[in-house]
Amino acid sequence: MSASSVKPSPQFDATDRRLVVATQGGLPLTPRPYHHIAEQLGLTPEEVMQRLAAMVERGAIRRIGAVPNHYAIGYTANGMSVWDIDDAVVDNLGERVGQLEAVTHCYRRPRHAPQWHYNLFAMVHGHSREEVSAQVDAIARLLETEFPGACRARDILYSTRILKKTGLRISG
């Protein structure tokens, strides 16, 4: 994880990197947070704001704001729903599932036969296991209506314990 191992993407320079390292733990809770960061880094506040805006623009920042702990705001049940979907239609189906309100992440991932046959992962959050299970049943019904026969098997993996949770960090 040394800085020298990093292949910078074309639009990501050393100053951007310093900005990421300075803000990935969070913004300063001070009235003028960008001025505070600018002072730390020896930049002007305008440059800090412009660079952050450019990163938002090109998708290097997904969003700026509050990241709630799901459990603390009542989403105590977190089910990773996994689906074995016909490869021919998995992308159409993934786009459809991603649009559903209860789904916070939706990805296609590789199978690992014989241990693992599922290729579509959709994270479903609810206030109880019953709610998550009902949502997953609703997804299954919708898929069977819109893509008959495409879903061969499914499961829900509930999380029973958080073993570690830190932010995703890059090193300075």
């Binding site: 990093v6 990501f12 803000t23 990935q24 700026i64 704001g65 702990n69 890059i170």
Partner: peptide, 18 residues
């Protein structure tokens, strides 16, 4: 209180070379 895990930019790490 841990209600928020962070407040700030959420980086898309792949777009930063990671």
């Amino acid at each position: 209180q841990g209600v928020l895990t962070r407040f700030g930019p959420m980086f898309q790490i792949e777009r930063l070379g990671g």
